[in-house]
């Protein structure tokens, strides 16, 4: 494991040289992630690693892509998706137009899950799905809609457990160990790089999903990001977080009402 002081030196340099601010990331996880890249790339001394990051922008980009956690899956936490399908999306379906933001979308599995549900509910044609991430490489994967075939069995199980009743295999074509999802699903998706640490609100949404992203941030940054979501959410819109995340340390509880016991909150006033 690298030392605390080394981690702080790296955070400083990455900010100073490239403007990416990891200063408010949770240290325990960040330290593990940086150590992982350090050893993975065969460095022996931290100053060599630091100097590589400083002098080689391509390498710094790779390092950032590697330290951000990009583990995701389709229909992760089926009961959460069941609630979206049965309660939240039908409510939004009464609107003429549905705007959804997947913040920290990683490789896009959750965005495709959403598109599948919207399609089955007859709502996809009037929806738009913005999907953003700090990491440009994962956005390319997300755009392609191509996911490893070995995961598909789990995804099909999740899909069924979340209330899906169609034949899941109708949504993709399997080839060379990969599943390519139908372009009907991605038609309404817009992918773009966005950094929750430093970028601002860019639209108004009816539903914002940001699942298992805030866990990597300290309390101050969590506060900033939840307020960014608040600024980006229409009144009566919904904010959905990961199953172990909460807004209770971040924003006035009178503004939001939790939806049953799910990690979904409705904005009840401006």
């Amino acid at each position: 494991m690298i030392e605390d002081i080394e981690l702080e030196a790296l955070i400083n340099d990455v900010y100073e040289y490239y403007g990416f601010d990891f200063g408010s990331y949770s240290r325990a996880s960040l330290k593990r992630r940086v150590s992982r890249v350090f050893y993975l790339d065969g460095f022996k001394h931290f100053h060599e690693f630091l100097s590589k990051v400083r002098t080689d922008p391509e390498y710094c980009k790779r390092m950032i892509d590697e330290i951000t956690v990009n583990v995701t899956e389709m229909f992760r936490d089926p009961s959460f998706y069941m609630t979206l399908r049965k309660d939240i999306l039908p409510l939004l379906g009464t609107k003429p137009f549905i705007r959804i933001w997947h913040a920290g979308c990683s490789t896009g599995e959750e965005v495709y899950s959403m598109a599948i549900m919207l399609k089955e509910l007859g709502l996809l044609h009037k929806s738009i799905l913005y999907a953003t991430d700090i990491n440009a490489a994962v956005l390319e994967t997300a755009k392609s809609g191509i996911f490893p075939l070995r995961m598909i069995k789990d995804y099909a199980d999740n899909y069924r457990d979340s209330g899906g009743q169609e034949d899941f295999s109708d949504y993709y074509i399997a080839n060379y160990g990969y599943a390519k999802f139908s372009e009907d699903l991605s038609e309404k998706m817009v992918f773009s790089q966005h950094n929750l640490v430093s970028d601002t609100s860019f639209n108004e949404f009816d539903l914002i999903l940001c699942r298992n992203v805030l866990i990597y941030f300290d309390n101050n940054l969590q506060k900033r990001v939840v307020n960014l979501f608040d600024d980006s959410l229409a009144v009566l819109g919904f904010l959905a977080l990961g199953t172990k995340e909460t807004i209770k340390y971040s924003i006035s509880p009178t503004k939001y009402k939790q939806f049953e016991r799910e990690k979904i909150w409705r904005k009840i006033k401006e």
Binding site: S29, R33, V69, V71, G242
Partner: peptide, 11 residues
């Protein structure tokens, strides 16, 4: 965490 809190990670 140093702040004597528990944090989570999905890596």
């Amino acid at each position: 965490e140093k702040e004597k809190t528990l944090s989570l990670d999905t890596s």
